[in-house]
């Protein structure tokens, strides 16, 4: 190995080439490894403000990097790469790439809120973790979570009719997330229903399945709500 200290270098900065020709000189073999520079060359001045618009992260600018959050963190005890202090710093300076690099662990925050309770500057780090997770998802750096898919299904029905139809929410959620409708718990529930036959309930359910429930005089309320939500999102994410 050409570079003995490879373990000291971030894996994503190592570029290896099977065949490498530079200025007409074949440098394949021992010289096939390049390291991208680790120097930070700029700050994204608008990033902090963007994250602060997401609920929970309003106080991120207060952080003075004492590290109490990381010290108290349940997840940090499991994985030293889970470092709220560091992500808060990266957010403040707009080191977006640093956040994206950790997209697969930021969401692991278990919301125990030990960080929020211990923080001497009332930064509410737990809220920042949630905000960062949302940002990563909304910007498409991480896949849409099931919980977001569920929210959208729920919300779509509200916008259409002002009410939801439980069985439709379930059916569509399972379909969208590629899960089987015949979940164990659902099968069990249907079995018991067949056994006890709560007639009124079954009739209601059947009716609702055919004629989805709708709020009276819902009219254009759904469109107005949709326009408002769109406006809010645009204001938050530009």
């Amino acid at each position: 190995m050409a570079i003995h200290e490879k373990s000291l270098i971030d894996v994503d900065r190592l570029l290896t080439h099977d065949n490498l020709v530079i200025d007409g000189v074949d440098v394949s073999g021992h010289w096939n490894t390049m390291i991208t520079p680790r120097t930070l060359t700029d700050y994204d001045d608008s990033f902090e403000a963007k994250i602060q618009k997401i609920a929970g992260a309003e106080n991120v600018h207060r952080c003075w990097q004492c590290g109490s959050c990381t010290n108290s963190c349940t997840m940090y005890a499991q994985n030293v790469n889970f470092n709220p202090r560091y992500w808060i710093y990266a957010t403040r300076l707009g080191l977006k790439e640093e956040i994206i690099k950790d997209k697969d662990i930021i969401w692991q925050c278990v919301s125990c809120n030990k960080c929020t309770n211990i923080c001497p500057k009332d930064v509410k780090p737990e809220g920042v973790m949630k905000a960062l997770s949302h940002w990563l998802e909304e910007e498409g750096h991480t896949e849409e979570t099931h919980s977001t898919t569920f929210d959208y299904e729920f919300w779509d029905q509200i916008a259409k009719r002002g009410r939801i139809e439980d069985s439709a929410v379930l059916k569509n959620f399972f379909a969208k997330t590629g899960q089987a409708l015949a979940q164990d718990w659902l099968v069990e529930m249907v079995k018991r229903m067949m056994k006890h036959l709560p007639m009124t309930h079954l009739i209601h359910s059947a009716l609702h399945a055919v004629f989805p429930p709708k709020t009276k005089s819902w009219g254009k309320t759904g469109d107005v709500l949709k326009a408002y939500v769109k406006e809010q999102k645009e204001a938050a994410h530009g």
């Binding site: 120097t39 930070l40 060359t41 700029d42 700050y43 560091y86 710093y89 990266a90 640093e98």
Partner: peptide
């Protein structure tokens, strides 16, 4: 060197 990021900086 940004001591907290542990990386060199060259910021305009």
């Amino acid at each position: 060197e940004d001591t907290l990021v542990k990386r060199p900086i060259v910021i305009p």
